[in-house]
């Protein structure tokens, strides 16, 4: 389970798989994502929990993605996600637009093993109009009429996440990035890159156990120092503004995107997999 290379980690994802991705602020597994691109995996279905940024944009730009479900794809202060925008406008990416709480709620339904979950809001929006898989029912427990949207559960084939710490037992400490726990609970398999692997058992540590994904949910762990670069990881390192600015500029064209992957900026410390 431990000490796999990033290449071995992502080689488990077959063509056509669905992959849940975390929001940018939770520290996306960018090094693993680049390994996935190098591996040449195609026709992926991305599920942003509930938004994505550079991670989805890299996969889209590299031609790995067929469909995506998301409430937002953006490079935040660095501007629009260029590959995402180009692919949607060209009709090359089939996008299921939705809203953040719908993705999180549907993932929670997946976590609970129930077929659907109701959610307030959405009624009267064009999001709902374009989502035949979302249905409006009458709240069966209300006295009067009370229409409410029900969302089908999301059970991703994979959750691909990054975290500060893993241990030799296969537990993964995620800090405050709580949605990573929900992702691991709901997904069939969870692949993790970590900054560091420690010998102690994280589940035996009273302080860290509540923010630790138990090994039961983890399929494999590989080490990737600065594995989110150029995105920052809370408590570990900051976002590399220069590299992201370069990406936002270069990835506007396919040539620039390819060049970024091939000869673009590299992290100060090389991404090491062992």
């Amino acid at each position: 389970m431990i000490a796999e290379t990033l290449q071995e980690l992502v080689a488990q994802i077959p063509d056509g798989a669905s992959i849940a991705l975390p929001p940018t602020r939770s520290g996306p597994a960018i090094a693993a994502t680049r390994a996935l691109i190098e591996h040449g995996t195609k026709n992926l279905h991305l599920i942003a929990i509930p938004t994505s940024g550079l991670q989805a944009d890299l996969l889209i730009g590299a031609g790995c993605v067929a469909t995506m479900e998301s409430a937002g794809v953006t490079l935040d202060e660095f501007g629009q996600a260029p590959s995402f925008v180009n692919a949607v406008k060209a009709g090359a990416l089939q996008l299921k637009d939705t809203t953040c709480p719908a993705l999180v709620s549907a993932l929670q339904a997946g976590e609970k093993g129930i077929p659907f979950i109701p959610m307030r809001g959405l009624i009267g929006s064009d999001l709902l109009k374009h989502r035949p898989d979302y249905q409006v029912i009458d709240n069966p427990l209300a006295d009067g009429a009370d229409p409410i949207v029900v969302l089908p559960a999301i059970v991703p084939d994979f959750a691909l996440i990054h975290a500060p710490l893993g241990d030799r037992h296969g537990n993964v400490w995620i800090g405050k990035a709580r949605e990573l726990m929900t992702m691991a609970h709901a997904a069939k398999r969870t692949l993790v890159s970590v900054e560091e692997v420690v010998d102690e058992n994280l589940m035996a540590d009273e302080l860290r156990a509540p923010a630790t994904i138990p090994a039961h949910y983890i399929t494999a762990i590989a080490r990737a120092t600065r594995g989110c670069w150029p995105i920052g990881l809370q408590g570990c390192y900051d976002t590399d503004a220069e590299a992201l600015t370069a990406y936002a500029r270069m990835a506007r064209t396919q040539e620039g995107f390819d060049q970024f992957l091939k000869d673009g900026p590299r992290p100060a410390q090389p991404v090491a997999a062992e």
């Binding site: 938004t51 409430a71 406008k89 809203t99 709480p101 809001g121 959405l122 999001l127």
Partner: peptide
């Protein structure tokens, strides 16, 4: 929609919070 002339990031939390 969906192949829009100008495409922005997405609806984020608006369809619940609003």
């Amino acid at each position: 929609y969906p192949q829009m002339k100008v495409r922005w990031s997405g609806s984020f939390g608006s369809a619940l919070l609003y």
